[in-house]
């Protein structure tokens, strides 16, 4: 039997790094995750810088018919479009739309969806049935169609777009969260917490959620990527951010007409979408691994 007496000071010496620094330490080890993070950070920096440097009215939307369809050059690295606008400037400025739509819509769907999924998984029974069946009904509607319906009902604006995409992905989050909760729900430590007098809400947030987190986090980063794609698709169909805003999907859409002769018009916005989506996916994978304490050395 160990019968030693320790003072608080001595116990503090055993204190390990905080959870956040622990996760960061693991996260750093993965090169692809770091690459994802760096790209996302760069994107955010670029977005902020573009808002400061460029003026919406003169640099982004003002037409310059004399300079139409200029091939990529030093002056216009990505070339100019059919209105003579600089594609690079528009792509950089447009990052703001994609990022904000992706992040805000996922925040909405993650919050609503995960809450529903946690409740469904934890309580089970009738509650679970109602939530899941409702989700299935919504999942039966193609997401683009649902997005179009919401957009046309509430009008075309950035805010409605965020809201629409957020709502579209709620069922996916609900199902992911619920599936992640199921194996956790029957663990004995949940019973132990109940016997210890911990309230249901506290159990959900301190035991169930942390243990069911990995799939949800992956879903979040995938969701950001999906949200960006869906926003671009809606804009491509002319239902997203209203023209002439340089949303990437809208740029793809307008460049499509000239794809045979001036393919750079679609190439650069498309590349921007791809890089952004890839970066978020890499970040999600890295975060999932870093959050698992069993992977720690």
């Amino acid at each position: 039997m160990v019968k030693e007496k320790y003072t608080v000071g001595e116990l503090k010496a055993f204190k390990k790094r905080s959870i956040a620094s622990e996760v960061w330490r693991n996260y750093k080890k993965s090169p692809s995750a770091m690459a994802g993070l760096i790209v996302v950070c760069l994107l955010i920096l670029v977005t902020i810088a573009a808002q400061v440097i460029y003026d919406y009215d003169t640099d982004i939307v003002q037409q310059d018919i004399m300079n139409r369809f200029k091939e990529p050059s030093l002056e216009h690295p990505f070339g100019t479009d059919h209105y003579g606008r600089d594609v690079m400037v528009r792509v950089l400025y447009g990052a703001k739309y994609s990022l904000s739509v992706g992040i805000v819509s996922v925040a909405i769907s993650c919050f609503l969806g995960s809450s529903l999924g946690l409740i469904a998984g934890y309580y089970g029974g009738l509650v679970e049935n109602i939530i899941l069946r409702t989700c299935e009904i919504f999942m039966g509607i193609p997401s683009i169609l649902l997005g179009i319906a919401i957009m046309s009902a509430f009008g075309q604006s950035l805010l409605v777009l965020m809201f629409a995409i957020g709502l579209v992905y709620v069922p996916m989050f609900a199902r992911t969260a619920r599936a992640a909760v199921l194996p956790v729900r029957d663990q004995e430590y949940i019973e132990a917490a109940k016997v210890s007098g911990v309230s249901d809400l506290r159990i959900i947030f301190t035991h169930v959620l942390p243990n069911a987190m990995s799939p949800i986090i992956v879903q979040v980063t995938m969701g950001v990527a999906n949200g960006i794609l869906t926003a671009s698709s809606l804009s491509f169909l002319g239902l997203g951010v209203p023209v002439p805003a340089p949303e990437w999907g809208a740029m793809l859409s307008s460049g499509r007409e000239y794809i045979r002769d001036y393919s750079y018009l679609t190439f650069f916005p498309g590349l921007a979408i791809m890089i952004t989506v890839l970066a978020f996916n890499l970040m999600g994978d890295g975060l999932r691994d870093a959050l698992d304490p069993k992977l720690k050395q």
């Binding site: 663990q187 019973e191 035991h207 243990n211 069993k294």
Partner: peptide, 10 residues
């Protein structure tokens, strides 16, 4: 509890 593996939150 019986199982000291599932009775402690990992």
């Amino acid at each position: 509890f019986q199982d000291p593996y599932s009775s402690l939150d990992p």
